[in-house]
């Protein structure tokens, strides 16, 4: 019985040295084992003691047993934590230490949605709010839909600008998402409000700002009563939703074969000044006609923008190739 205190100290020392579940289990049996456990054996000696001794040792024994039980319990918990920690290496063993709320929380495995998807989803949401739904279309297109129906005839000067990948004489990789205007018009009657995100292709050498394959989002509205003022209002709203209500937007005249008038849109960037983000305009009456819509009755407007560029602007990415690099060190930042 006199060894009680020694037993207690030994137990604590041994417990502290325990590193694995097995060691813990052995130690637990060593002290608490039903037959040969030290504490069990001590307990069996208690009834044989004199009353005086009982009064002396009884409470001490109970205290020791209680203390050790709670220490063992704690140890078991901390062992469980260590086990989990092995799954997640960055965790710190807090137990037996004062509580420190500044230790980082557990790092949970969360996947990241690609920044381009995030931009496209945001654009979809903004236009959805304005009653636009979204549709998808073919990336391998015909010359007819990509060019001719959009009034870009075989010898049109803008075919130079749009360096085109051809599959054969008739098939090509669409150079913009605008063929979706015609495809949608052909199958739907006004009112029409759609956006159409997707990939487009141009024969560009890859560099920090160009890729042979990139993304575009097309937008189209056709109705009996709409006007350029609606186009300007919608694009102004869009820019302010995407870049903040205080962002500065400006519109100026441009030229696209399939819109008349055509308007270019720029946003002001603190470091880089005015930056082109959108081309737009009133759908040319002949384009409406090519889509089977009566230009006497309906007015339309359309716009196109590059999500790659929007993502680069928004996140300060200086090389478009990063967006398609598949590098987790990049992807995990979004």
């Amino acid at each position: 019985m006199k060894n009680l205190e020694i037993t207690s100290r030994e137990a604590v020392v041994k417990l502290n040295k325990v590193k694995s579940k097995e060691e813990f289990e052995n130690l637990r049996i060593h002290y608490f084992g039903r037959k040969k456990g030290i504490l069990t054996q001590l307990a069996s000696k208690l009834p044989n003691l004199s009353d005086k001794e009982k009064r002396k040792w009884g409470p001490k024994f109970n205290q020791l047993k209680q203390d050790l039980s709670s220490l063992f319990e704690k140890k078991e918990k901390s062992l469980l934590l260590i086990e989990e920690k092995h799954k997640d290496k960055k965790k710190v063993l807090h137990d037996n230490l004062p509580f420190d709320p500044t230790v980082p929380g557990r790092k949970l495995a969360v996947g990241h949605i690609h920044p381009l998807t995030q931009i496209i989803d945001e654009v979809k949401d903004i236009f959805h709010y304005l009653g636009f739904s979204w549709v998808d279309g073919p990336e391998v297109e015909t010359d007819e839909y990509n060019f001719q129906k959009l009034l870009i005839h075989k010898d049109h000067p803008s075919r130079d600008v749009q360096q085109t990948y051809y599959i054969n004489d008739e098939l090509l990789l669409r150079t913009h998402t605008s063929p979706m205007q015609i495809r949608y018009m052909e199958k739907h009657s006004p009112p029409i409000r759609i956006i159409s995100p997707g990939r487009a292709y141009r024969r560009d050498m890859p560099d920090a700002t160009h890729l042979p394959d990139f993304l575009q989002i097309e937008g189209l509205l056709i109705d009996e009563k709409t006007a350029l003022t609606d186009l300007l209002g919608v694009l102004d709203f869009f820019v302010k939703r995407l870049f903040g209500p205080k962002s500065k937007v400006r519109f100026y005249g441009h030229n696209f074969p399939y819109t008349e008038p055509s308007v270019e849109v720029e946003v002001y960037h603190k470091k880089r000044g005015w930056i082109e983000i959108l081309g737009s305009g009133m759908v040319h009456p002949d384009v409406l006609r090519n889509g089977g819509i009566d230009p006497e009755k309906y007015i339309g407007w359309a716009f196109g923008m590059g999500p790659d560029r929007l993502a680069m602007l928004r996140y300060g990415i200086d090389d478009i190739r990063l967006l398609y690099s598949g590098d987790l060190r990049f992807l995990e930042q979004f």
């Binding site: 304005l130 009653g131 739904s133 739907h188 006004p190 009112p191 029409i192 409000r193 509205l221 109705d223 009996e224 009563k225 709409t226 006007a227 003022t229 609606d230 300007l232 209002g233 919608v234 102004d236 709203f237």
Partner: peptide, 10 residues
């Protein structure tokens, strides 16, 4: 002037 379209939602 900048306006928002007032037509029917398709």
């Amino acid at each position: 002037p900048k306006k928002l379209p007032r037509g029917d939602i398709p």
